[in-house]
Amino acid sequence: MAQIIIPTPLRKYTEEQAVFTTDQPTVELAINELVNKFPALKTQVIDNSGKLRSFIKVFIGEEDIRGLGGEQATIGDKDVVSLIPAIAGGVSVSLN
């Protein structure tokens, strides 16, 4: 079965579960299965239009699903799917 790695900051919505296993054939179906099992996670990952939130990236292995067909990307038995939150920031004003 494929594995979905839950990012640490979102594990409070998955009863501290770090890895979710699934035999769904696509990213979309796998994530739907995940958020159906853990409904509190849904709003953290999916926006009001039913799409992945813009600040969450999904990778299969080391590849962004945007280059693999998006949410319709297929996943195999040994794939590791990662939900990746944006990590960014910086100082607020110009240095000059």
């Binding site: 990012p7 640490t8 409070k12 944006a86 960014a88 920031g89 100082v91 607020s92």
Partner: peptide
């Protein structure tokens, strides 16, 4: 446990900016 992230503020105080807040996550 992955408990957080560090970064530097060159020539600025260690106070989070609006850019830091925009994508900040709980728990970290």
């Amino acid at each position: 446990q992955l408990l957080g992230v560090y970064h530097s503020h060159p020539q600025h105080p260690a106070i989070p900016s609006e850019h830091d807040l925009k994508v900040a996550l709980p728990f970290f």
